[in-house]
Design a protein around this nucleic acid. Structure first.
Lengths: 142, 142
DNA sequence: CAGCATCCCTTCTGATACTG
DNA sequence: CAGTATCAGAAGGGATGCTG
């Protein structure tokens, strides 16, 4: 059981492994593997590569991400805020104004979510084609 | 790259856009934004960059992805097979043997899932730190 | 070994309605 | 505008038992 400090450090460095059920990274993976998370990060990150924060208001996000209910949008934003991926800024104007923006951490994930969205759009036809042929290859079908 | 505004409009209109609720790519995005999908693709794709298919048996997958129930594993594999991301090969040995492997389509997504898993593992500490400070920011920290 | 079927509980998610 | 609260239905997901 005796381990050197170097060994222990190396172990801690590779400590997180999403293949392990008990690993916290599994939960994190579950969180970011979410339709709304991907779309929110995509919306907030679009056009922000140049460094401009691209802050979006709550209603702007809701408009951009068609079909999202206020509940899910709020829930998603809250979890992202808690995890340090987005910032929430409240401006106490008369009709209160709330704007959201990506943090550096969020930006680092945005690239992936954008690719994910792009993949879904780019390969939609291929998947659709496969679904159409699937199931009839086995001769099954009543 | 010179495109008229009309051409660009037509192109955007025709393309899949996950921001639209009715767009099929929204459903596809929802499908691939799944914990088990990510882990299965990660498991099947590991070490397959050189072209070796890296086929895994059902039980091997189950062992690798700790904590997955047979139900979820089968369900995930079926959906991936239907969408043309993995192939399912049955070898009629006495104890029947079933192996799974990524298709080209699946391989194209594997890079993203691997990055996703890596992101979760790499930024776990940062997220954990943020969660710890979240909520107590208003009352000062300890 | 590799599933499928079933039960059953939990979580998620989407309307709807209401508030500061 | 930017949420919050509540409810009901849908889906997720585990445990168990059973096949080929």
């Amino acid at each position: 059981m005796t381990r050197t400090a170097a060994q222990r450090r190396a172990e801690e460095k590779a400590a997180y492994n999403a293949f392990f059920a008990a690993c916290p990274s599994r939960q994190l993976l579950d969180r970011i593997s979410d339709k709304w998370v991907v779309l929110v990060l995509c919306a907030l990150g679009e056009g922000a590569e140049d460094g401009s924060p691209r802050t979006l208001r709550y209603s702007e996000l809701a408009r951009r991400i068609a079909g999202v209910s206020p509940k899910m949008l709020t829930q998603t934003l809250r979890s992202l805020e808690q995890d340090g991926l987005v910032t929430r800024t409240v401006v106490p104007t008369v009709p209160v104004t709330v704007s959201y923006a990506l943090t550096d951490l969020g930006s680092s994930l945005h690239g992936l979510t954008r690719s994910l969205r792009a993949w879904a759009q780019d390969h939609m036809d291929a998947v659709l084609a496969h679904r159409a042929t699937a199931g009839r290859a086995a001769g099954g079908g009543s």
